[in-house]
Simulated scan of single mutants.
Amino acid sequence: MLAAYAAQLVPDAPLDGLVVGERPAPEARENWSVVEVRAASLNHHDLWALRGVGLRAEQTPMILGTDAAGVAPDGTEVVVHGVIGADGHGVGPREPRSLLSERYPGTLAQYVSVPTANLLPKPAALTFAEAACLPTAYLTAYRMLFSVARLTPGQSVLVQGAGGGVATAAIVLGAAAGLEVTVTSRSGAKRERALALGAAHAVETGARVPARVDAVVESVGQATWAHSVRSVKPGGTIAVCGATSGDAPSAELTRVFFQEISVRGVTMGTRAELAALLAFCARTGVRPVIDSERPLAQTAQALARMAAGEQTGKLVIVP
């Protein structure tokens, strides 16, 4: 089968280690299902894997990708929950928690094998491409906003770095849920796009926000961390799901403890949260923002677009 995989790990030039070529198709086994992938989407996790973060040289070649929607062996249209080892999903009680493409081959292929319990019915209202955008970025944003920060309609949130997958998801989901969303970006075009998606305010990176917020969605790291700490209300929450600009140079601990700010890490979400997210999208008409759809052969070009920070929304790969 055709797949996009890490043939080698090249920390300084990650795309040099990417190959789109033939790999063995997965075989059926007990408690697992082989899904025909109709759409997958890219995440920064794929670039980090090519750099060797979370993936070791001896694990290559490794098929990349954590998100997918497709067709199960019985013909059911499904969405793949990419967290393996959570909730005892058919992999044994001692299975360490991981994401697809870390211990098991990922979704950037014509077929992917996952624990059967990781499959959720795809709502008929969602296309395969739309559904494939949800299990990582949108699920992470959903968990950050509603499970971790526990935001409710009328409250406020700051989303750092408009344009990326999680940031765009947080804008769309937050606006749909009645939150006052403020976004940051160095790009005027991305700020305008965020406003069009439902954000109430859009400011340059590091600029003063209109008012301190109840929570911050932080995925940028070093470039925005100090701004996040200074922008959240006393007793507020900073939910952290990544550090695309690198780790924060200073933790701002004095401000964190003095203002009793909660800092919570988030990696994707549970199967139940994904089911809730799918229902939320189906019932409200909210749809993930898609930057572009490309064939599997153009995975390198799509990852290059992500690495350059040029996308607004999700990059979808259609095998």
Rank of each mutant, 00 (worst) to 15 (best):
A6S: 06
Q8I: 00
Q8E: 15
V10T: 15
P11F: 00
L18G: 08
V19G: 01
V19W: 00
V20T: 14
V20W: 00
P24C: 10
A25R: 14
E30Q: 12
E36C: 00
E36R: 14
E36N: 04
V37E: 08
A40N: 05
A40W: 07
H44Y: 15
L47G: 09
W48C: 03
A49I: 09
R51E: 13
V53N: 06
T60K: 05
P61I: 00
P61L: 01
M62G: 10
L64C: 07
T66G: 09
T66M: 11
D67T: 07
V71M: 09
A72W: 12
P73M: 02
T76K: 14
E77Y: 00
H81L: 07
G82L: 02
V83F: 00
V83M: 11
G85L: 10
A86W: 03
D87I: 01
V91T: 14
P93S: 12
P96E: 05
L100D: 12
P105D: 09
P105C: 05
G106S: 06
L108Q: 05
A109E: 09
Q110R: 12
Q110S: 09
N118G: 05
L120D: 06
P123W: 12
E130L: 12
C133P: 05
C133S: 13
T136R: 01
Y142W: 15
M144E: 13
M144Y: 01
L145M: 06
L145W: 08
S147V: 13
A149I: 05
T152I: 10
P153M: 04
G154W: 04
Q155P: 09
S156F: 05
V157K: 12
L158H: 11
L158Q: 10
V159P: 10
Q160D: 01
Q160V: 15
G163V: 07
G164P: 10
A167Y: 01
T168P: 07
V172F: 03
A175G: 14
A175K: 13
S187Y: 10
E192F: 04
A194K: 02
L197V: 04
A199L: 08
A199S: 12
A199M: 11
A202H: 06
V203P: 14
V203W: 02
E204S: 14
E204V: 08
T205H: 02
T205Y: 03
R208F: 00
R208N: 07
R212T: 15
R212K: 14
V213M: 11
E218P: 13
S219R: 00
G221Y: 00
W225R: 08
V229I: 14
S231W: 10
K233S: 03
C241W: 05
G246R: 07
D247V: 15
A248M: 14
P249H: 13
A251L: 15
A251E: 07
L253P: 00
R255Y: 01
R255M: 12
V256W: 02
I261H: 06
S262C: 03
V263G: 02
M268I: 14
G269N: 05
G269E: 03
L274Y: 06
L274E: 02
L278K: 09
T284G: 08
V286I: 13
V286W: 06
I290N: 06
I290E: 10
S292V: 08
A297T: 15
Q298L: 09
A302Q: 08
L303S: 02
A304W: 01
R305K: 11
R305H: 11
M306E: 03
G309R: 02
G309F: 07
E310A: 15
Q311M: 06
T312C: 13
G313D: 11
K314M: 02
V316Q: 06
P319E: 00
